[in-house]
């Protein structure tokens, strides 16, 4: 029936449908270009001589292709250390965050839990109302986690909106009969949580992992206020290079060619460091992309 109708649509659609198809394709390609080109341009520039970049010779392909930018990035101790810090914060933070989300989401998905509503409200309030920057800062100070890795994720607490997404997923996508059968067979809540909920919710788990990873990988403000320079994650290190445009002392001592050479190096590092900072997440997200729709809809249907 549908196959027949589709065929018929193709025939009947005729010219007007084909014209609109062409228009839609053109629109899509324009969108594609607008989004992709700036990223492509930086990628090309990162392999090019910076003077050629600023002379407008690298719109499509690298000019005087070189890996010097990347060599300089990985020779810069601040960046390497920042990279290491970022990886550490991202791994630990993601594990913490996802664990918190699951610890909140599962109990709140159990229908007969007494006090469920109060606990939900307790968490949801924090989505809309908070103490603000300074009182949070003072609490972090007071609890003695300043300048420790704990400051990177404890103050964030529970990602409540993500917990709601996960809870809705548990409620809607894991059959209630399965949970009931398990509890009648004498499985405890711990047992159900670890051997049923977690394995059965891998799609939403992957979405939560990627959301948390991205949040930690890209975060710099938390580190700006709570951490020392040595503990700065990559984006914060890049602040000096990209935003303040200052060359570091180590760079200056490395280079013998004088100020012009140093300037060139600074510019090269900019492009390469953008790629180096953005690449991990850009490579990771397409793998879980098919679950985004499911994840976000689960959160939107029922806040």
């Amino acid at each position: 029936m549908t196959v027949f109708a589709r065929k018929k649509q193709g025939q009947l659609g005729g010219l007007s449908d084909r014209t609109s198809d062409i228009i839609l394709v053109i629109f899509s390609l324009i969108i594609l270009l607008i989004i992709a080109y700036p990223l492509y341009y930086v990628l090309v520039a990162s392999f090019s001589d910076p003077y050629d970049v600023y002379a407008g010779k690298t719109f499509l392909l690298p000019s005087q292709a070189t890996l010097d930018g990347y060599k300089a990035v990985f020779a810069e101790p601040n960046i390497v250390r920042g990279y290491g810090n970022s990886i550490l914060y991202t791994v630990v933070g993601t594990i913490f965050s996802v664990a918190m989300i699951y610890l909140v989401a599962y109990p709140l998905s159990v229908k007969e839990l007494p006090g469920k509503k109060i606990v939900s409200i307790f968490f949801i309030i924090t989505m809309y109302f908070g103490g603000g920057l300074i009182p949070t800062y003072l609490i972090v100070q007071k609890t003695g986690i300043m300048q420790t890795i704990w400051a990177m994720f404890l103050p964030g607490g529970v990602a409540v909106s993500n917990a709601i997404i996960a809870r809705n997923y548990f409620e809607n996508s894991i059959p209630g009969s399965l949970k009931e059968a398990a509890s009648i067979d004498g499985a405890s809540h711990f047992r159900i949580f670890f051997s049923m909920i977690i394995p059965l919710s891998l799609p939403i788990l992957s979405v939560m992992v990627i959301f948390s990873m991205v949040a930690y990988w890209n975060d710099w403000f938390t580190a700006l206020i709570y951490m020392t320079n040595e503990q700065a994650p990559l984006p914060l290190v890049l602040r000096n290079i990209l935003i303040k445009s200052s060359a570091s002392a180590s760079q200056a001592s490395m280079i013998s060619g004088g100020y012009a050479e140093l300037n060139k190096m600074t510019e090269m590092i900019k492009f390469a460091s953008i790629i180096v900072a953005a690449a991990p997440m850009l490579i990771a997200y397409p793998f879980v992309q098919k679950y985004f729709e499911k994840g976000l809809m689960a959160g939107a249907v029922k806040g």
């Binding site: 918190m100 909140v104 908070g130 103490g131 609490i139």
Partner: peptide, 26 residues
């Protein structure tokens, strides 16, 4: 359902300290 309350324990404590604590600090 005591096990469910155990699961909720850590997130609730953290939320009290780092979310409700600052509200008190206002």
């Amino acid at each position: 359902n005591w096990q469910l309350y155990v699961l909720l324990l850590v997130p609730v404590i953290l939320t009290i300290i780092y979310k409700y604590g600052p509200m008190y600090g206002i």
